[in-house]
């Protein structure tokens, strides 16, 4: 194992997060099932979270002036993102349920009544 591989640093996490992000993009574009699109969004949010936590760990988590507290802003944001993801999933699923009740399908191609 080369040193570059053995020493896991910020890069590795960022590249992994980029991969997750791209997978999320592709999922959003390819799925015709509305819930599939939602899953793509979840992937993208997770990619962002990995970035936040990794930056926090490698760049930011230093003791703030000896006060005994660490700066953990990245982790806090990640928590907020998780909460928002939960909220978003709840609302989105409620909307999908309504959609399903109206169109008896979950294929987003069918929901074209909003066109101008």
């Amino acid at each position: 194992m080369t040193p570059m591989l053995a020493q896991v640093g910020l890069h590795h996490y960022l590249i992994l997060a980029a991969m997750l992000f791209v997978c999320g993009l592709a999922t959003m574009m390819l799925k015709r099932n509305a819930i599939g699109i939602l899953m793509g969004v979840e992937l993208i949010l997770n990619a962002a979270n990995v970035n936040l936590v990794a930056f926090n760990r490698f760049r930011f988590a230093v003791d703030a002036g000896g006060t005994g507290g660490l700066r953990l802003d990245g982790q806090v944001f990640a928590i907020f993102v998780i909460i928002l993801a939960a909220a978003e999933a709840a609302v989105a699923l409620a909307i999908f349920l309504s959609f399903y009740n109206n169109f008896t399908t979950i294929d987003v191609e069918r929901g074209t009544q909003l066109k101008g």
Binding site: L25, M28, M29, R32, V108, G111, T112, L114, K115, G116
Partner: peptide, 25 residues
């Protein structure tokens, strides 16, 4: 303005997503 933009609103969600993401990329 709405009358002018109207033709772009196809109502197809996935087209919106595609355009959005392509723009992002």
């Amino acid at each position: 303005v709405g009358a002018a933009m109207r033709s772009a609103q196809s109502g197809r969600i996935r087209l919106y997503v595609m355009v959005l993401l392509a723009a992002v990329a």
